[in-house]
Computed example of a mutant assay.
Amino acid sequence: MTFAECPARPATCWRADTAPGESIILPDGCMDLIWTGEELLVAGPDTGPYVFRTDRHRDMTGLRFAPGYAPGLLGAPASEFRDSRVSLSDLWPASGVRRWEETLAAADDVGAVLSALCDAVPGEPLPPWIGTLASMLVRGVPVSACADTVSVSVRALHRISLQYFGYGPKTLARILRMQAALALLDDAGEDLSGIAARAGYADHAHMCRDFAELAGGPPTAWTGGGQASGL
């Protein structure tokens, strides 16, 4: 996933035209602000596959924030949203959220309105190394070395990670590594052992164990873009 160039709050806009039935969203370390067509929701961060069910067609648009960046906007720790979907009106004054929802319902460019909503909220300052920490973890840098780099103890890093990412740094590292493997799964001519090595796993078996726990199935279940965007 490529995030838009926005130093204060990196995010990418997505749209999902969802048919009746089930969609599976895998954990990616991110949080989303979603316009469902009816209400504004906050999604994630997830620790396992989230199954979204709908009995009718839905056209949804969302902003997916890079790991660590949504809590500063929302004014609440990421751990409060772990494995959940929360109405924005439960977090912010309902009257203000309702005005934004009315604007979104009438908008031709929903993504632009969502961006304007974020720009209108000052948010809380973030540690300057949030993006650096996620980058180090996805590269396989040990947690102790990450803590040294940002000048905090390992215990403090765990506490900070819960606040901004929703889970500890080791869990975040596993999720980001799985996402790195997912991006490689459609590479032609490469077997799973090669993908595991390139994604930073110790071996193929280790990758399969992580996929079973975090994605609910083997890596081969996700070839061909099986993961959905959305709720």
Rank of each mutant, 00 (worst) to 15 (best):
73 L>F: 01
76 A>I: 07
79 S>T: 09
70 A>C: 10
89 S>P: 04
92 W>T: 00
91 L>C: 07
73 L>C: 01
72 G>C: 08
79 S>E: 14
66 A>T: 14
90 D>A: 15
74 L>C: 04
89 S>F: 06
77 P>C: 09
91 L>I: 11
67 P>Q: 07
87 S>M: 01
76 A>C: 08
80 E>D: 15
83 D>C: 09
73 L>G: 00
94 A>L: 06
87 S>T: 01
80 E>N: 12
88 L>E: 06
93 P>L: 03
74 L>A: 02
78 A>S: 07
70 A>G: 04
73 L>H: 00
88 L>W: 01
92 W>G: 05
68 G>C: 13
85 R>G: 03
83 D>A: 04
86 V>C: 08
86 V>Q: 06
70 A>D: 02
78 A>P: 03
81 F>E: 08
85 R>E: 09
83 D>K: 02
78 A>G: 06
75 G>F: 07
92 W>L: 11
85 R>W: 05
82 R>D: 01
89 S>H: 08
80 E>I: 11
94 A>M: 08
78 A>K: 03
81 F>T: 03
72 G>V: 06
66 A>C: 15
81 F>A: 13
78 A>L: 08
95 S>Y: 00
80 E>G: 04
77 P>R: 05
65 F>V: 12
80 E>S: 12
87 S>L: 03
68 G>V: 12
